[in-house]
Nucleic acid binder design. Sequence first.
DNA 1: GTGAAAGCGCTAACAG
DNA 2: CTGTTAGCGCTTTCAC
Lengths: 343, 343
Amino acid sequence: MTLKEIAEMAGVSAATVSYVLNNTAPVSAETREKIEKIIKETGYRSNILAKSLRKNETRLIGILVEDITVWHTALIIDGINEIAEAKGYNTILYNLRLLSKIQSQFDHLADFQKDIDKAMDVMIGMQTEGIIYVGMHDRKIIPAIQEMGKPIVYCYCYAESENSCVRYSNEETVYQITKILIENGHKNFGVINGLEGSEPAALRFEGFKRALAEAGITLNPENTACGGWKYHGGFEAAKKMLQKNNFPSAIVAMNDEMAVGVYDAAKEVGLRIPEDVSITGFDNAEIIQHLSPRIMTAERPLQKMGHSAAEILLEHINGKIKEARNIILPCKIIKGDSVSFRK
Amino acid sequence: MTLKEIAEMAGVSAATVSYVLNNTAPVSAETREKIEKIIKETGYRSNILAKSLRKNETRLIGILVEDITVWHTALIIDGINEIAEAKGYNTILYNLRLLSKIQSQFDHLADFQKDIDKAMDVMIGMQTEGIIYVGMHDRKIIPAIQEMGKPIVYCYCYAESENSCVRYSNEETVYQITKILIENGHKNFGVINGLEGSEPAALRFEGFKRALAEAGITLNPENTACGGWKYHGGFEAAKKMLQKNNFPSAIVAMNDEMAVGVYDAAKEVGLRIPEDVSITGFDNAEIIQHLSPRIMTAERPLQKMGHSAAEILLEHINGKIKEARNIILPCKIIKGDSVSFRK
DNA sequence: GTGAAAGCGCTAACAG
DNA sequence: CTGTTAGCGCTTTCAC
């Protein structure tokens, strides 16, 4: 069913049907009703491809995600969708599926570039008015996306300085958590870092050190360990720390998965949480939802990052902003019951 | 940059450029090279909108999801993407965002219909060749999607009998789990059901009863409870059962969240898992990844459901199958260490 | 108020 | 091997 056919059925010209459809010229009530009736009866829906082609405007934004199965991706997409829907934009999703490909393929880089090219064929070919790139890790993206004359916003990662990006605060969040521990009288700290070489791990550790430095507290090097983001890393590291006589009164784990390991280590060593040892995490992950006592952790503003990315992209598209924005959104601290007051 | 411009730069006709681009007619090596060089230099990408319009073929399939933030949705999308990518189809995602809307709005049905209509405007308007509808619960969808002359496949839900659908096996899976318990000598069962009125809950319970009936085991009505899919439901129900003198030797929880509640109840009552009581779950959810001992559970074949839905849709599109398919995929039983041998 | 006509970027006969 | 031409479904001057 095409606009032309509707016009024929109504005995009017295609132009008139278009006027009715888009309210783009005055039409007599009589013809309008006749046309609207036919449209309803036939279930006609205008061909967006043709319309976009003709108008040279698609109101389409592309969402290019590295891997949709990584937990945060879906929430960011949801946030983007919310803004796009509100502003009358449609979205097209391209899922690079990096996770499964990295596992199964050998020469990552060449294949990655090939996939990006394919994605860009679709994104540009579909005439998207801009692109949001959602990373699977928070890191610097190699500039695999060549310039395309259309705005691009990076989310949960960043790239060249000319591109806007939206991230969450690692440093400040751990700084705040650590400060809360200090305010509760803790002086003897243990810390379990994330994977070596990971940027968020480094940033989170920075925040931790800043809070300690500000309070003039020194860290016993024996009480700092790398848990590699994993449960067992947290478990083993905490066990070592907690078996000592002067075990730390508070252990800051840089994510929840490691923090659960710390919980189990404390139980195994026979220490109570939070009476004997206070524990904090990061992420507000599914895994801690029924941990007892509830752990102090931080929730990443994932949906909000989607909102922000979409809003900035639309402002770029509409020419409201020209220069790149670098947005760092705060996390929400969740207090829990895993921190005790000392002295 | 358009095909016509490329043609002008190369001093040939638009047709020739099209021939090169699509390998649709023999072109002399000389002109081909010249054109390819210009394409590479200019970074030209063909306008998919124009191409699709002209060819009356989009190779686009629509993915209509009720809510992308519901855990299983992303994995199903990923599965669909994998097949689509392999077969040279692009996908467009429409996220109804039902979850947040149901929470914040009053008259669900009217708004739901409005949203579906909007989604169909996009899906049909973009000339998708077929649609996969991904539910947020496994249930019968009210037929809000009017016929559109294009194939539609339901995934993680079902609709009218004329439509294909892809689901996973609830009944058979719990039957198998229960049978394993019976084979391990268990006779005194406790069961914690999901939400009342939920279809998967009913089906899972059916499977449980079938295994018991087959073995001639009767269920003590005191040992059957509804946990409403939630941790606390599982916890409270299990506590009651386990405090009795003749407490069940095995508790079948119909999902993992409730099973974690059962774990905690057993600990509180002072029973060991699996020596005193065996426990099973369902879903292989994130929440149980570090439970000790590892729980026997079942993993839903989410990515495979995506594969299957995409494959069936493409067969419908290509006319290979005409009648509706009703696919029930098996779950994978994960043995764990939460079941002991009795007698 | 309404219609005729041109054209968005591309492909596909058909000629040559 | 290459070009001419028509047209996919729609919008938009510009007339009337």
